[in-house]
Write a protein that binds this DNA or RNA. Structure first.
Length: 649
DNA sequence: GCACTGGTTGGCGAA
DNA sequence: CTTCGCCAACCAGTG
C-alpha cells in the first residue's frame, strides 16, 4: 500500500511467530515499517524487576532484534529510551507515521498507557490497529461471555471460552519484513522521572539507560545490565524466542510426558531438570506464543495412543488458569492486585498490610508494620532464613534462579500467609514480583489470593507443612542440600527439621543449629523462627474468624477501619481494644508519631496504625529514609542491615 | 431453597 | 509400604 508507514510496537509479544498483531501490520503492506520498543520508565522504576528478569527481557529483545535483521538487513528492533506516551507523538511527526499497530494488553497500567497513546495517535491522524494475542481468548470477550463477571473459577473459563470460539491455530512467522524508513530523531527527549525507583536497592550504580534516546552509540541498542546499574544476573534461565521454541520442541518430542502430564504429580523438589516445562517466562514475555504451545501439545494429545491427561491438570489445563487470572484482572483492573477496594478479595486482618491512597484507591508500595515480630518473620522468609529448610531452600532458589516449581510456590505462600506468619499476601506478591522471571501481575496476584484463601480457593484448613509436605517428594532432601548447603551433610532423618538433630549429629554434619539467622556465620543454620504446629492453629483460628466476619476489600468497614470492631481482641493480627493499644502503641499523642502524611500526597486514613518503629523503609524507595530509619527498633535494624548485606554480597 | 458433589496439588493415624 | 477415613469445614455449581 503506497504511503503507508507503520510502527509496530512490541511489548509482551517478543516474537515473530504467531503474532496476530504483527500479521495485521504486515497486511498493510507498508512502504516503511519500524519494529519499535519503548523503554518505559514505569517499568524501569515503578515496577519491581530484579536483575534476572532484566536479563531475561533483554535476552528476548536482543534475540528478536537479530531475527528481524535476518529477515531484513536494514531492520532491527528500534529501542528508544522514553515513555511511549511522550515519544510516540514526536515519532508520528518525525517519521510521518500513518499506522500504529500493537498487541492488546489488559494489565491495568497497560490499559491506561495504551488509552493515552491511542488518544495521541488520533490527534495526530495516525490509525491504530490492536489485536488480541496474549491469551488463549481475548480477556475482555471472556469476561463478556462470563456474564460480564470476572472469571473466578476454572469451570467459568471452560464454559465461557468456547462461547467465544475455537482457539486459533498459530500463524507462521513472516518470511520477510519491509524496510524501515529514515530514523531521524530531531526532537528533544523527555527525561523520565526517576523517583520513586522501586529497584533502587538492587542497583550498584545509578541508572544510565536514559542518557540518550537511541542509546550510547545511537544505534537503538537494547540497554545492558551495566547501563541499568545492576550486577550480573544469577539465573541460568535465559530468554528469547529461539530458546523458547527450542524448549517447546524438547517437551513435544517426549510424547508421553506431553500427553500424560499431571501438574499435581510433578515434584516441586526436582531440579536439573525440573519437573515442569519452565516455559512460563517465555509466555510472559511472548517469546513463546500461548497458541503455539496449546496446539503443539493438543496435536500430540489427539494422536496419543494411551490415556492422555485432561484439563485442568494436563499441560493445556495450565494455560486455562492463566486465562482465568487474566479474565479476573481484565474486569477488576488495578484492584485485582491488592486487597483494598477489591470486590472479590476477602478481607483478612493480616500483619503488614499495604498502605493505601484513598484518593486513587491504590496501594502506595509501602506497608504498615503492625508487629515487629511479623516483620522479622517476613524478612527471614524473604531471605531464606526461617530455620525451616524446605522454605529456605525454595526462597533461595527463587532469588538465585528466578523460578520455583508451582507447588514450591504453594508451600512458601501458604507459610507466609494463612499457614504460618499470617502476613499479608501482598508482601509475598511483591517479593515474587521482583524475583520471578515469569512474573505477570494477573497470575501472581491471582495465585497469591488463591494460596492465601482470599479468592479462588477457600479450603484454608488444607495447610502445607514445611516438614511433612517435602518428605512426600524428596525423602533424602537433595533439593535442600542443593540450595541450603549448610545442611548438605546432615542425616536424612533431620533434613527438614534440623533443630531436632542431636548435637553429635550436628557436629558430624559440620553444622550448628543456632541463632535467628541475623548473623551470617559459616557452618551455622538458624533455629526455626516459631513452632509450626502452634502457628498453624493460631492461623486456622484467625482464618475461621475472618471468614465468619465475611468482609471483602471493597466493604466500607474495611476502608474506614471500623472492621476492627468485628474481630476478637485476642485473635491473630491487628485487632481492637486494649491489646490493640499494647501491640500498636498509643494511636494518638505519641511523640514518635511520624506518619506518611499529606505532604507526600498520600491520604492514608490509618485503617491500621503503625507502631513506633517507623514502618517507612519499605517500598524500594529512599523517601524519608534517615529520619524514620533512626526510629526503628535496634534489633530490627540490625536484622534489616544484615539481610541487605546478604543481598548485595 | 436445600441437599449434595466436587474442587489441579494437606496431614495424620489406623488398618 | 499403601490406602482409607477423618480432621472440621470453605465455596461454587448442580439438580
Amino acid at each position: 500500500m503506497p504511503n503507508t508507514r507503520v510502527i509496530y510496537w512490541f511489548r509482551t509479544d517478543l516474537r515473530l511467530h504467531d503474532s496476530p498483531a504483527l500479521q495485521a501490520a504486515l497486511g498493510l503492506h507498508p512502504e516503511a515499517f519500524w519494529p519499535v520498543w519503548t523503554w518505559d520508565p514505569h517499568y524501569v522504576y515503578r515496577a519491581r524487576v530484579g536483575v534476572n528478569r532484566w536479563q531475561f527481557l533483554t535476552d528476548c529483545q536482543n534475540d528478536l532484534s537479530k531475527s528481524i535483521t535476518k529477515l531484513n538487513k536494514k531492520s532491527k528492533l528500534f529501542l528508544m529510551r522514553e515513555a511511549p506516551q511522550t515519544l510516540f507523538p514526536k515519532l508520528f511527526k518525525a517519521w510521518k507515521i500513518t499506522h500504529l499497530v500493537f498487541e492488546k494488553d489488559t494489565d491495568a497500567y497497560a490499559r491506561d498507557r495504551d488509552a493515552n497513546v491511542i488518544k495521541a495517535a488520533e490527534e495526530a491522524g495516525v490509525q491504530v490497529i490492536v489485536r488480541s494475542g496474549r491469551t488463549l481468548w481475548d480477556s475482555d470477550l471472556l469476561v463478556e461471555k462470563n456474564h460480564g463477571k470476572p472469571t473466578m473459577s476454572i469451570s467459568q473459563v471452560q464454559n465461557a471460552g468456547p462461547k467465544i470460539g475455537l482457539i486459533p491455530r498459530p500463524i507462521p512467522a513472516p518470511k520477510s519484513l519491509p524496510d524501515p524508513g529514515p530514523t531521524n530523531l530531531d526532537f528533544k527527549q523527555d527525561e523520565p522521572d526517576q523517583r520513586p525507583d522501586f529497584n533502587g536497592k538492587s542497583r550498584q550504580s545509578a541508572d544510565k539507560s536514559y542518557e540518550k534516546i537511541a542509546g550510547p552509540k545511537g544505534d537503538f541498542a537494547v540497554p545492558t545490565l551495566e547501563e541499568l546499574g545492576f550486577p550480573s544476573a544469577t539465573s541460568a534461565h535465559r530468554g528469547g524466542e529461539t530458546i523458547g521454541l527450542k524448549i517447546l520442541d524438547n517437551i513435544i518430542s517426549d510424547e508421553t510426558y506431553t500427553a500424560t502430564f499431571e501438574k499435581p504429580k510433578t515434584s516441586p523438589a526436582a531440579f536439573d531438570p525440573q519437573a515442569t516445562t519452565l516455559l512460563s517466562p517465555h509466555l510472559h514475555f511472548g517469546s513463546l506464543s500461548i497458541r503455539e504451545f496449546y496446539w503443539r501439545v493438543q496435536d500430540i494429545v489427539t494422536t496419543f495412543k494411551g490415556k492422555a491427561s485432561q484439563p485442568p491438570v494436563s499441560l493445556t489445563g495450565q494455560l486455562l488458569f492463566r486465562d482465568m487470572y487474566f479474565g479476573a484482572q481484565a474486569k477488576l483492573g488495578y484492584s485485582f492486585g491488592q486487597t483494598m477496594y477489591n470486590s472479590h478479595c476477602r478481607f483478612i486482618p493480616w500483619h503488614l498490610p499495604s498502605k493505601v491512597n484513598h484518593e486513587t484507591k491504590l496501594v502506595t508500595g509501602e506497608y504498615h508494620i503492625d508487629s515487629t515480630e511479623a516483620e522479622e518473620w517476613f524478612q527471614r522468609w524473604k531471605w531464606g532464613r526461617t530455620g525451616f529448610p524446605w522454605i529456605d531452600a525454595l526462597m533461595r532458589q527463587l532469588r538465585k534462579d528466578g523460578w520455583i516449581h508451582h507447588l514450591g510456590r504453594h508451600a512458601v505462600a501458604c507459610f507466609l500467609t494463612r499457614g504460618g506468619c499470617y502476613v499479608s499476601w501482598e508482601r509475598g506478591a511483591e517479593v515474587f514480583e521482583e524475583w520471578l522471571l515469569d512474573h505477570e501481575t494477573a497470575s501472581n496476584a491471582g495465585n497469591w489470593q488463591w494460596l492465601s484463601c482470599t479468592a479462588f480457593f477457600a479450603q484454608f484448613y488444607r495447610c502445607y507443612s514445611p516438614v511433612a509436605f517435602p518428605k512426600k517428594w524428596d525423602k533424602e532432601g537433595a533439593f535442600v542440600r542443593k540450595y541450603v548447603p549448610e545442611l548438605k551433610n546432615l542425616d536424612d532423618k533431620y533434613i527438614y527439621e534440623p533443630w531436632t538433630a542431636p548435637l553429635a549429629n550436628q557436629k558430624k554434619a559440620g553444622v550448628k543449629i543456632q541463632g535467628n539467622g541475623s548473623e551470617d556465620v559459616q557452618g551455622v543454620y538458624p533455629k526455626p523462627m516459631f513452632d509450626f504446629g502452634e502457628r498453624r492453629t493460631v492461623c486456622l483460628d484467625g482464618m475461621k474468624k475472618a471468614y465468619q466476619v465475611g468482609l471483602y476489600g471493597d466493604d466500607a468497614k474495611v476502608i474506614d477501619g471500623s472492621w476492627r470492631k468485628l474481630f476478637d481482641d485476642h485473635g491473630e493480627g491487628p485487632t481492637e481494644g486494649e491489646s490493640f493499644e499494647d501491640a500498636m502503641g498509643p494511636s494518638a499523642g505519641s511523640e514518635d508519631k511520624i506518619r506518611e502524611g499529606p505532604e507526600h500526597g498520600f491520604d492514608d486514613d490509618g485503617a491500621i496504625e503503625e507502631d513506633e518503629s517507623g514502618a517507612k523503609e519499605i517500598g524500594g524507595e529512599s523517601k524519608g529514609g534517615e529520619k524514620r530509619g533512626s526510629k526503628r527498633k535496634a534489633g530490627q535494624k540490625t536484622l534489616d542491615a544484615h539481610f541487605k548485606k546478604l543481598k548485595t554480597g
